[in-house]
Design a protein around this nucleic acid. Structure first.
Lengths: 118, 118
DNA sequence: CAGCATCCGGTACGATACTG
DNA sequence: CAGTATCGTACCGGATGCTG
């Protein structure tokens, strides 16, 4: 399987999309980011950490851990990540814009199914 | 959860990406499409059928079943689907172009981990 | 050929508890 | 605060067999 397909899956993954979208606007601390994303969909600590690590490893997200007590870790976008995030956001926006068409299509589809089954 | 997030997930799903990409070039019959996608990654009949149904319901794919024996079903893109597919393809292309950067980032990340753990 | 029904294993994911 | 470790589950997705 093509290696770049995996990268695409990381970027378009459930939480990857939301992380990229949030970090595109400004850096976030861990819990802060969790709360921000939580406005849209509840993400567990585990999945957020995992997603961030994956994106960091792929070079999309920069992790900046300050050696202080209490711990403080800031996440921000790299230039590479910014390019990815912009495309992801464009696609996300597009789905928003076209949502009405999608729902119309769904209604038509469901209506057609209904008439054949009854 | 925002409804358009679901649409995004359909479009960027494992097989959704490949289906959209293939149908962007030309219409396909079911098994033909399965073979075409199979060049990249093996998809089961079940998942292909499921993916196609979802994309059809969302109004991205047009399904044209001819009432003949043996059955013949052609799948093609709607205008809405074409818009989505083009963005998905652009993102897929981008990951291909930037793959070298990603791999360099991964090597750096793994090397850093290695030195701290040893 | 197209595609639905069924079963079944892997893993993605969430909840909770614990650590530095 | 920022995670890791562990556990339990729900669902994704594959294999197989059957129908029109």
């Amino acid at each position: 399987m093509c290696p770049h397909r995996l990268v695409l899956e990381h970027v378009t993954s459930r939480w990857g999309v939301l992380v990229l979208d949030a970090l595109l606007d400004r850096p976030y601390r861990f819990s802060e980011l969790r709360r921000e994303i939580g406005k849209v969909a509840a993400v567990s600590e585990k999945m957020l950490a995992q997603t961030l690590r994956t994106l960091e490893r792929d070079g999309f997200v920069r992790r900046d851990a300050k050696p202080v007590i209490p711990p403080r870790v800031d996440y921000s976008m790299t230039e590479l990540g910014r390019e990815a995030a912009e495309q992801v956001r464009a696609l996300a926006r597009w789905t928003g814009v076209r949502m009405a068409d999608v729902e119309r299509a769904r209604a038509a589809y469901d209506a057609a199914k209904e008439s054949t089954s009854v």
